[in-house]
Write a protein that binds this DNA or RNA. Structure first.
Lengths: 318, 318
DNA sequence: TTGTATGCGTTATCAT
DNA sequence: ATGATAACGCATACAA
């Protein structure tokens, strides 16, 4: 490319990167740009990565389909914002590439940052990443971590929020659904803990997403007076089963969902749900991340960014 | 790394890549592996990319949250399978990085393959990619393309499938919902075309996802006898509005959704929906892609892989 | 069976 | 104000 423009490689680099401490005449700049356009020249990201020791990739090793709509929306916009800062968000599910530990396949890409569930992080993994150029490893968790700074989605607060509303409505015997579904069961347990912070005796109701299971629960004689159903989908499942069993909602049993899905208002009774108000915008996070990667800012273990604040949206089901 | 193992770089490369035309003693192999483990050595993907001219990345430039659950599930498993073949699926939303054409930012990563909506492809973009090392550009479309091989999700077939069922049930005046929602409006129009293939006079019903809009439609005096509501969520919205307006479903108006979501069976009446049977598995596609990238197979414009076959699941709403 | 040498495209440093 | 050069880590042709 350089030879084609009649200038040196260095000059090309200066021009195309708008390098501020390079002094290049406007005439030369034009010649370089012309040649680049003519040749369809595109800078090679891998060469830059090799040279600088760090890629522009921000890794998010999560199974997209399993993270839920809320976090998926967040990632979507976060990726947009990162793009504006020159990064590329890379989302991919877990692999067991010939038994290679996940952290190694992450490190191979020399990512600028990694955002991953803390349950999948070990000290060794963090060390491997940081020693191979990654500037910051951010955990995804529901509480602070001694290992890394975290982005928090506080599931206990969600359960507590729902439970407070149910108690406030005069229901004293509570229950909380814990989905029997891989990938979200842990979140279910966290939300249950939150319910129990407010209503210590709350019952755990394990439930798979099937009408048979829901019918079995609905047929019980000793149903709690109020149930936090984990999310809106499980709430719909449960309400549907309760109605089929002749149990009145909310008269006999109050039900609260979470996520405040658009379809929540379409149910009859309309679904009372825990809504998530964003507290940190993707744009702010992207800007923060850029500062950290550029070394203008430190972020150690213990640091916390809260993503959402739960808020109850009262409709008819509770 | 090489010096630490007491061997040459070349030997390290041979051993770690299981290079078949290199003959290395088992003893040396062991020494290399031991040193790699001891040092926490991780090969640098960017160096490999620079050397070979092509990365292991498979780019899917789509806004994840907007592609729908079905395709998201597909991508999720496709990514897993690609991982087994040594590729990394990279999903990211559209950027407008300082006005740089999208194809340039794709080409910068020297991806092995790109899978993208054909509406975002031009001849120039395809040429740029192929000339910079990308082995195959695959379009995502609802019909064959003269530009690239495509993966098909035939929306017209979906509409036709729903319309056939409605006609077969004795409904002759049909309507089809076209969502007024960026990103899915084009799919809505394709599904409408499919309905009209079977029922030429079918009415187009534009609808935004809001209860007010749906109520307005439901209040009409001249409702069609059968409506294909685009998908299950719009079907739920519409049915809810119809019921509020005193219109009986399916007696007065039959409604068909699509996607066959788990919650479809929770509605009352239970939702009749177009289900998607996978015809090509992610595993097959990943294997196919690997063959193409390795040059063992050609894939030119016109080639088509059909992803799903639509099938009606009859319940109570139509 | 193993080592040596070369070059991929970029950027930092130093020379002109 | 611009050019020359080295080095990043890896894969590969070729020498030993």
């Amino acid at each position: 490319m350089a030879r084609a423009a009649g200038v040196s490689q260095a000059t090309v680099s200066y021009v195309l990167n708008d390098n501020p401490n390079a002094r290049v005449s406007e005439q030369t700049r034009e010649r370089v740009r012309e040649a680049a356009a003519r040749l369809g020249y595109v800078p090679d990201a891998s060469a830059r990565t090799l040279r600088t020791g760090r890629s522009g990739l921000v890794l998010v090793p999560l199974a997209p389909a399993r993270t839920g709509r809320l976090f998926q929306d967040f990632l979507d916009r976060f990726g947009d914002e990162l793009g504006r800062h020159g990064f590329t968000l890379v989302q991919y599910g877990e692999r067991h590439l010939k038994g290679v530990p996940a952290a190694k396949s992450w490190a191979a890409l020399r990512p600028a940052a990694v955002l991953v569930d803390v349950t999948r992080l070990t000290k060794a993994a963090v060390d491997l990443l940081t020693s191979s150029g990654t500037r910051v490893v951010i955990g995804l968790a529901d509480k602070p971590s001694p290992l890394v700074p975290v982005v928090v989605l506080d599931h206990e607060a969600v359960g507590a929020c729902a439970a407070r509303h149910l108690l406030g409505g005069g229901r004293s015997r509570l229950g909380a659904v814990v989905p029997r579904e891989e990938g979200i069961d842990l979140m279910g347990e966290a939300r249950l803990r939150g319910v129990r912070q407010v209503a210590p005796g709350a019952e755990r109701i394990d439930l798979a997403f099937s009408e048979e299971e829901a019918a079995r629960v609905a047929a019980r004689a000793d149903l709690p007076e109020g149930i936090f159903a984990y999310n809106d989908e499980y709430a719909m499942l449960l309400i549907s089963a309760l109605q089929d069993a002749g149990v009145r909602v909310p008269d006999d049993v109050a039900v609260v969902g979470a996520d405040d899905l658009p379809i929540a208002t379409l149910m009859r009774p309309r679904l009372t749900s825990v809504h998530f108000d964003p507290t940190a915008t993707p744009g702010e996070l992207a800007a923060l991340l850029e500062e950290i990667v550029r070394g203008e800012r430190e972020a150690g273990p213990g640091a916390v960014v809260d993503l959402y604040r739960p808020r109850i949206v009262v409709r008819d089901s509770a």
